[in-house]
């Protein structure tokens, strides 16, 4: 039960933590890629929208649920490509190229001296410097661009 792929301990820990902090905990049973076993995906409570059944505290007794997922273009094509039409795959590849091709990267909110990128993407990324609280021009927290 506890191996690198299944990792029940970490998933259970995440589920308990979600329940204690937010009052909600969600998981989804999914078939493994080989189709020979069952896996468990822990879902973020912020991204699950169940239609609650007032007679049960369990989500499985609800009648519908929406799960929002954040995936890159490659992940979407890898997971749903076989079920998508060729037009949709082309649409995804053509129109989503610039938005999701790169991994998320750190950039500063406030950087008064302009871009000083040393990275391979050039102007699209900024240098992340630790900064001190007294450095007013570096007071912004790093965020995902």
């Amino acid at each position: 039960m506890q191996n690198r792929q299944t990792d029940f301990k970490t998933k259970l820990w995440t589920l308990i933590k979600d329940l204690l902090i937010s009052g909600y905990t969600f998981y989804q049973t999914v078939p493994t890629p080989s189709g020979s076993n069952v896996g468990i995906d822990v879902l973020d409570p912020l991204n699950v929208f169940p239609d609650k059944n007032p007679n049960s505290p369990y989500i499985k007794d609800s009648y519908r649920v929406v799960v929002r997922k954040w995936m890159t273009k490659s992940q979407i094509i890898n997971k749903y490509g076989r079920e998508m039409s060729k037009e949709d795959v082309k649409n995804l590849k053509d129109n989503w190229k610039d938005a999701l091709d790169w991994s998320a990267r750190y950039a500063r909110i406030m950087h008064t001296s302009g871009c000083q990128s040393l990275g391979i993407i050039g102007d699209h990324e900024a240098v992340v410097e630790p900064g001190r609280p007294s450095d007013k021009h570096k007071a912004g927290n790093p965020n995902y661009e």
Binding site: L20, S22, G23, Y24, Q28, T29, L43, K60
Partner: peptide
């Protein structure tokens, strides 16, 4: 049943109850 499962702890006002909070 749905493939999504889980549990919610609501108070009597149907609001989520955070034990940590």
């Amino acid at each position: 049943s749905l493939t999504v499962n889980g549990v919610y702890f609501d108070n009597r006002n149907d609001e989520p109850f955070s034990l940590v909070l």
